[in-house]
Write a protein that binds this DNA or RNA. Structure first.
Length: 885
RNA sequence: GGGCGGGUAGCUCAGGUGGCUAGAGCGACAGCCUUACAAGCUGUAGGUCACAGGUUCAAGUCCUGUCCCGCCUACCA
């Protein structure tokens, strides 16, 4: 007797298989192969600790695709790795250092980097082990890291190449500055957050006049850096003041009143203070009018010596308070009006960013963006869902130079050297030997690159670029990129641009952008909100396969996918159901082992076998179609419905009945079908399916899987001929069985009681089928003492009735039947039919419908009406009888 | 200010190009420990598909408008 436990225990099963797959090298991709290539590069997780729910979704979907394609016979590469993640990782380390009582600066650059590498060693290992727990079938022999030697070479190569093309340049511009992280950041890293602030209305006295200009600002402290006041040239209120000067309060500086179109006469007071060094728009105005750029902040956000001395050293916020106080004391403050507005915060440290003028390195991405747009328009790359294409275009069309230098330590140092003698700039792979000026002493730029620069090269840097490797030849461009829509601009767009810039080819053919996992309220799950599910805890509670099933099942193409706990529970129940189906089959196979004889011809097979084979074929087709189109939820649901509601609910019940009669063929087919479905389901639930597949016989008749050591490398099952005739017959039988069960249930016939069944059908074909099959199948589902089938028979007295089209089922229930209950039941059905009849009649009475609708639709409608009318009539007659009796 | 997504059963969601009597899971109710599974089985209830127009023989599906919810994006100081 098989000792399989009644309850599926994922912990027991999952542990062993990953090891097995790994040691057999099933996940390894060949650089050179006859098989067609299929490649996905993993979105490299940051080395910041544990995986979150988003990783679980992202990697489950990738693994589904990867396993699917592997089983389809592709030479599959899933390139794994991790990302050094620049500033985020540094911030984590800084916190650790503070806990240890030291600091980044105390340690110094070299020691700090050393610590970072130690952290990387631990963290990357932990992340890998988590991905493995999830079942991810990555080619671990190829694991990469964005800061490893090969990738660093790729980064330098790309940088030098783009520099030589003039796309990378250094310049002084206004950038977003994070005073906390002490570095420039890009627009994308700035998150506008709505906050409750104020409008401060300030008086600026005009010199040589008794006029006072009233100016509104949300940032009064920046007035210390004002170098002009601007009004609109057409603004009649202020026209006469243009060219005059105001005396800047608190500073006693004279600044000009200028005219600029930018000013909105409707907004605020229509007069604008201009701080070219601390506001993007003011910066532009300043350039147009050649205004002084008066920087009043230090890099860490304190007041410097360009402001009046009494403010020196104050933080931005202290300064604001003091300025407001001083304005009030000097009678310059008109009023303070509450005002809600968006303020940019650094997405990594949540500090308010400061627009600042700074010498930085930039990348002119416009030409590459243009290429990317063209490539997309030529369908060299396709976005799924399609709506993401519009977002992509919008971003690319309005793209601005990308500031790529960061005043940080953890990252790729810019491959830029300055001659110590003449300061000439050289971009090179290594330290130059000699400068044009003859000098041989160089110093390298201190800055590191934005972390997204190296991730932007990921699809080809991981494959050995700039060397011309076999991997690149085989796998580039990769097949699909799978990631969340939230990093479309951060990462996907940059990979496409840099791919085109460095490889002259897009990095992937398809981009599948999935939704973000949300809680029940539709809020994105995140650690900071405290509403997230921890993947490892979930796996511990429900098992990996249940979790993966829930993730695939939740993955509908909407921006936020809810993942209620109940879905994961459903996954667990499903796993248990499949487990038990396998258990049933295996237990019985011991008593009825599969002989090694030839297959029996399909035509000779009993109806239920023909039926389940047809349904299986249908399931194979629709899951394949769904997965080719990234409809993961459909794959999950199709397999769930087939396994549970067709295979278990019906087929196994049929098979069960055959066994005592010593007709084990149905059981053998059950084993065969289950074996095939295990292969189909494997990409979603790899562990459970491997366990069952290994237990099931899969040699003999299944020659296509013979010799495979694992379901991981077995081919996907192929659809066979479908059998519409068997399906029709079976659905008639099922309809009859369901109706009998329904009557019994509703009229409370005791479970143990047998009933007689009288069936009337004018259709000889249907009668014939029922006569052939009903007797064999009915006992599996309900207790029946006697079956009568005839073209016409009287309704037995005191019987319950069900009607399916022209077919009527009578069940005599003398002594059991509750006439009122039966009447209510039939009335309900009757009322529904009347409504449906009316609707169908209305349609068919419309001459335009007959004329214009396709014939097929008209015919269908006619058939429907006919069926409904017969049912209606039968029910009406029965109701009359019930009432009169 | 623009743009996108969503509003279908108590809850979470499916319903490719308009056409089968609008579906699933969970939950609810009633009955079953039927020899694979009580994490199960059987049956039942529950929806004027946000609202208002329009196109069409035919609208949950297409168009217009309105109202909610969410998101992305934008230089309104």
């Amino acid at each position: 007797m098989t000792s399989l436990p009644k309850i599926y225990d994922p912990q027991e099963i999952e542990g062993k298989w990953y090891q097995f797959w790994q040691s057999n090298g099933f996940f390894h991709a060949e650089a050179i192969s006859d098989k067609p290539p299929y490649a996905i590069v993993i979105p490299p997780p940051n080395i910041t600790g544990s995986l979150h729910i988003g990783h679980a979704l992202d990697n489950t979907l990738q693994d589904c695709l990867i396993r699917w394609k592997r089983m389809q016979g592709y030479n599959v590469l899933w390139m794994p790795g991790t990302d050094h993640a620049g500033i985020v990782t540094e911030l984590i380390m800084e916190r650790k250092l503070v806990e240890e009582g030291t600091s980044r600066n105390a340690l110094g650059r070299e020691k700090f980097i050393e610590r970072m590498w130690q952290w990387k060693a631990e963290s990357a290992g932990y992340i890998v082990s988590q991905l493995q727990q999830l079942g991810c079938s990555c080619d671990w022999e190829r694991e990469r890291f964005t800061l490893d030697d090969g990738l660093s070479k790729a980064v330098r190569t790309a940088f030098v190449k783009l520099y030589n093309q003039g796309l990378i340049y250094r310049g002084t511009y206004m950038v977003n500055w994070c005073p906390q992280c002490n570095t420039a950041v890009s627009n994308l890293e700035v998150e506008p957050i709505e906050i409750d602030g104020n409008f401060y209305h300030i008086r600026y006295p005009v010199i040589d006049s008794d006029v006072v200009l009233e100016i509104a600002t949300t940032r009064p402290e920046t007035m210390l850096g004002d170098t002009a006041v601007a009004v609109h040239p057409d603004d009649e209120r202020y026209q006469h003041l243009i060219g005059k000067k105001v005396l800047l309060p608190l500073c006693d500086r004279e600044i000009p009143i200028i005219a600029d179109d930018y000013v909105d006469t409707e907004f605020g007071t229509g007069a604008l203070k201009v701080t070219p060094a601390h506001d993007v728009n003011d910066y532009e105005i300043g350039l147009r009018h050649d205004l002084e750029q008066r920087t009043i902040f230090t890099q860490d956000g304190h007041i410097n010596e360009n402001a009046p001395e009494k403010y020196l050293g104050l933080s931005r916020w202290e300064c604001r308070k003091k300025v407001v106080q001083d304005l009030e004391n000097g009678d310059f403050l008109v009023k303070i009006v509450p005002h809600r507005h968006a303020v940019g915060h650094h997405d990594r440290c949540n500090t308010v960013v400061e627009p600042a003028i700074s010498l930085q390195w930039f990348m002119n991405v416009k030409p590459l963006a243009q290429k990317a747009i063209e490539a997309t328009k030529k369908s060299e790359v396709t976005f799924i869902p399609e709506r993401e294409t519009a977002r992509f275009f919008h971003w690319m069309e309005n793209i601005e130079p990308w500031p790529i230098s960061r005043q940080r330590w953890w990252g790729h140092r810019l491959p830029i050297w300055y001659c110590s003698a003449c300061e000439k700039v050289t971009a090179a792979m290594d330290t130059p030997k000699q400068c044009e000026c003859g000098a041989t002493d160089f110093h390298q730029d201190e800055d590191v690159l934005d972390t997204w620069f190296s991730s932007g090269l990921w699809p080809f840097s991981t494959m050995g670029w700039p060397e011309e490797t076999d991997e690149l030849k085989t796998f580039y461009p990769t097949s699909v990129l799978v990631t969340g829509w939230d990093i479309l601009f951060f990462w996907v767009a940059r990979m496409i641009m840099l791919g085109l810039g460095c490889m002259d080819k897009v990095p992937f053919r398809t981009v599948y952008l999935h939704g973000l996992v949300a809680d029940e309220k539709g809020q994105k799950m995140s650690k900071s909100k405290g509403n997230s599910i921890d993947p490892l805890e979930t796996i511990a509670t429900y098992g990996t396969d249940a979790f993966r099933f829930a993730l695939a099942n939740a993955s509908t193409p909407i921006p936020y996918v809810p993942l209620p706990e109940s879905q994961i529970e459903a996954g667990k129940r499903f796993a248990n159901k499949v487990w038990n189906a396998a258990r049933f089959i295996l237990m019985n196979l011991e008593k009825h082992p599969i002989p090694t004889t030839e297959k029996i011809e399909a035509a000779q097979e009993p109806l239920e076998i023909q039926w389940i084979r047809s349904r299986l074929s249908h399931t194979i087709k629709s899951t394949t179609d769904a997965l080719e189109n990234f409809r993961f939820y459909e794959v999950a649901q199709t397999l769930y419905a087939f396994l549970w509601h067709e295979f278990c609910d019906w087929y196994l019940e049929f098979a069960k009945q055959r066994l005592p009669k010593n007709e084990p063929q149905a059981l053998w087919v059950a084993a065969d079908v289950l074996e095939q479905v295990m292969r189909l389901l494997h990409p979603i639930m790899p562990f459970l399916t491997e366990e069952i597949w290994q237990l099931l016989p899969h040699g003999g008749n299944n020659s296509d899987v013979d010799g495979n050591a694992s379901v991981t490398v077995a081919p996907l099952p192929k659809p066979t001929e479908e059998n519409p005739d068997a399906e029709t017959t079976m659905s008639t039988l099922m309809g009859v069985i369901e109706n009998i069960r329904s009557i019994r249930g509703e009229l409370n016939v005791p479970i143990g009681a047998s009933v007689e069944v009288h069936i009337q059908s004018p259709n000889a074909v249907v009668r014939n089928r029922l006569e052939t099959y009903l007797e064999q199948y009915l006992p599996a589902f309900t207790k029946v003492s006697d079956i009568t089938i005839a073209a016409s028979l009287p309704k037995p007295p005191a019987s319950a009735e069900a009607v399916i089209g022209d077919l009527a089922i009578y069940i005599p229930l003398a002594g059991v039947i509750d006439f009122e209950a039966e009447k209510a039941r039939l009335t309900k059905r009757y009322d529904q039919i009347v409504k449906d009849v009316e609707a169908a009649q209305k349609t068919l009475e419309n001459p335009n419908f007959i004329e214009r609708a396709p014939e097929k639709v008209v015919a269908q409608k006619r058939e429907l009406l006919e069926r409904l009318l017969i049912e209606q009539e039968k029910l009406a007659r029965s109701l009359t009888m019930l009432t009169s009796s």
